[in-house]
């Protein structure tokens, strides 16, 4: 059997009857939640991602590493529909498996579009995809501080995002959520994510928070609508080393408390070592190597991975 780089055959995952994968290796059963199948992406006709296939599983942290221009950020932007006018998924499919859907919004969106319980994200219109963004798939960016409006408090902005992207279900989230209900929910979430003073955070303007705190609030904002998948695009790159650890700890807390699947794109091997279960190494739009994080970092098989790891300055303690 030909093993396609990135596909999980080698990492203890088994194929289901519906062609998806699962694993029972780490205690509970892990189902495939998002899958890239032979995906090619171009910007202005120039291919930047070429024939990439991989899957991420429930509760898994998947790291994607590579140099600038390797196409790692483009992959997650494609899933979120953030390629812009010049970017296009030219081939392949990106499947998302929503699991049980109690959410009316989601039900309306995927009605008739499911294939074996999965939705092909590349076939959705922008409007349909937007309904999944927030509630099903969240994203945090390199500089969360700049994605906040500078003249309104964090609390007001999170409330607005919650009304816009929150779940519309029997529990009364989404447009129907009241300000007081939002506050209870937001404070509960901030507490779960290790914030000591949630009230102060909600009352603060973005500039009153440090860079690290802004990034942590960005993660909390993405988690508020309760997504099952969190995409993180270089979430620690703009931060000092001492603050990077706090952000990594917060993402680990997200997985622990909510079982969220996290796909983290970074060039920082230290961040990958600290949090990822599996890692994909990308170069020139293709997957060079994929596997269990410790295996890839301690015993890389491919020449490029070896070169990349050898270039990382290591502290001699």
């Amino acid at each position: 059997m030909t093993v396609i780089k990135g596909m999980p055959e080698n990492d203890g995952f088994t194929k289901n009857g519906d062609n998806s994968y699962f694993s029972e290796a780490n205690g509970g059963r892990q189902e495939e939640i998002i899958r890239f199948d032979n995906v090619g992406i171009s910007y202005n006709g120039i291919p930047v991602v070429k024939d990439v296939s991989f899957s991420a599983f429930s509760g898994e942290i998947l790291g994607i590493v590579g140099e600038s221009g390797s196409g790692k950020s483009t992959l997650i932007k494609a899933a979120m529909g953030l390629l812009g006018d010049s970017g296009l998924v030219t081939k392949g499919d990106i499947y998302y498996k929503p699991g049980s859907h109690t959410d009316k919004n989601l039900k309306d969106t995927i009605d008739g579009k499911e294939d074996l319980g999965r939705i092909n994200l590349t076939e959705l219109t922008n409007r349909e995809l937007r309904r999944l963004c927030g509630t099903e798939m969240g994203m945090i960016f390199q500089n969360a501080g700049s994605s906040f409006c500078p003249i309104r408090t964090v609390g007001k902005q999170l409330y607005e995002a919650m009304r816009e992207h929150g779940r519309v279900s029997d529990q009364g989230f989404g447009r129907s959520i009241s300000a007081s209900e939002f506050r209870v929910r937001a404070l509960e979430l901030l507490e779960k994510l290790g914030f000591d003073d949630g009230d102060r955070i909600l009352e603060s303007y973005p500039f009153e928070l440090s860079g690290g705190m802004q990034q942590r609030v960005g993660i909390a904002a993405a988690m508020l609508p309760g997504p099952k998948v969190l995409f993180a695009d270089e979430p620690t790159s703009a931060l000092d080393v001492s603050v990077q650890r706090q952000v990594v700890d917060e993402m680990l807390m997200v997985r622990k408390n909510f079982g969220t699947t996290i796909i983290i794109v970074t060039h920082n091997i230290g961040v990958i070592r600290a949090m990822a279960d599996r890692v994909l190494v990308m170069k020139d739009g293709m997957i060079v190597e994929c596997g269990d994080t410790l295996r890839v970092l301690n015993n890389p098989k491919e020449a490029y991975t070896k070169k990349l790891l050898a270039a990382v300055p290591v502290l001699r303690r």
Partner: peptide, 21 residues
């Protein structure tokens, strides 16, 4: 550098080195 990394003499330096991932 080697001395400072292995035996930081200051709380701040110690914290900085410990936080490296």
């Amino acid at each position: 550098p080697d001395d400072i990394v292995r035996n930081p003499g200051n709380e701040y330096t110690k914290r900085l080195i410990e936080s490296i991932l």
